[in-house]
Design a protein around this nucleic acid. Sequence first.
DNA 1: TACTTTTGACTGACCGTTTAGTCAATTAAA
DNA 2: TTTAATTGACTAAACGGTCAGTCAAAAGTA
Lengths: 199, 199
Amino acid sequence: MAPRRPEQFEAIREKSREKILAASLELFANKGYDATSIDNIAKKAGISKGLIYNYFESKKSILLAIFDDAMKMGEELLMGQMNIKDPVLRKKAIIELTFDMIKQRPDYVKFLTVMALQPGVMADTKDFTKNAYKKTEEWSKLITGKAKKEAVIDTLMIGAMMDGITLNFIIYGEQYPLDELKQEIIKLYCGPEKKKKKK
Amino acid sequence: MAPRRPEQFEAIREKSREKILAASLELFANKGYDATSIDNIAKKAGISKGLIYNYFESKKSILLAIFDDAMKMGEELLMGQMNIKDPVLRKKAIIELTFDMIKQRPDYVKFLTVMALQPGVMADTKDFTKNAYKKTEEWSKLITGKAKKEAVIDTLMIGAMMDGITLNFIIYGEQYPLDELKQEIIKLYCGPEKKKKKK
DNA sequence: TACTTTTGACTGACCGTTTAGTCAATTAAA
DNA sequence: TTTAATTGACTAAACGGTCAGTCAAAAGTA
């Protein structure tokens, strides 16, 4: 009577959904949202165009799903470092984590960076700017411990630094010396690992 | 016999061309290339669609014209600082110049940044990556004087810093404290203005 | 002054193509 | 047979680009 057991359907659906998301992520990150057609996604995912609309109600909703996934993953990674008590060590851990993310998931990083520069694309669905600014505030607390007025500039500097390195890595690719820059930024902002920081 | 004098036509043409370029720059910078239609440009410029093709042979050629203008302006500004002999002062001047450019021509800066992240758009017409990398090399020489191996990281750090600040300014807008960050980066990379730099 | 002629900037309906999105028909497993 | 995943031909809208034709302005003619 029942043709397939529910969990079998669930597995099939999950697999197809994943194929669509993976193909879309790659295309959105490399070509941008507008330059990517539904046909492109279907071909890259190895499925038909119609099937995509069995899983997502529109092109925008695919974008939104990827965006949510990326933000969720980023937040989880970030929150995983919350248990580090010492502020300097925590700062260092977060910086290293960001570099890891750039190297391990450049697709997500590229996707988010590209989207950040196309406000018109996200504007309809998510208040991206507000979201990003909130994230910066969280970063600020995480990195400096408290919201010391003087330390805000420091946080913004580190944030800009990381964004700039990310941007250059996206543009230049593997030839960009990520590791050396990581050492440099840690040396700059986490001190020479001795004493309490003065001035 | 002769209806209008050539210089009158020239003035008219220049004005229209300028309207098209101005409208395109604003739209490309804010919405991106693919999301901007020829109709959008025509409406914003207050002219008809057909007239655009009296001045540019394709949508891509508009993009290219803006790109060339932006690069030309940037290069002229940069080369204007070449006469400063002292490396530290020159470095400082270039950094300040970059901040000035961000504040005075955010449209150009935004345009270039958006285009840098859409390799597919520029790929057909200009080798953007190569161009950008060459620019970085020039920067390196300008900033460090010579191509000291150790100083490359320093140059890349400053470059990433500036790019990151630019990116954040584009995203956050006027609330982003450009001036404070300028002071900070000058303090960091141009030394406390005393003695010769050591280590 | 009034009229005609000449010019090229300018217009918008139109063209072929491509797009996002739909749906009746098909497929395959239980 | 039942069920739901899957397909691709289809549609309406939007796209970049074209082109036959309109228009205003300047100079010659009277």
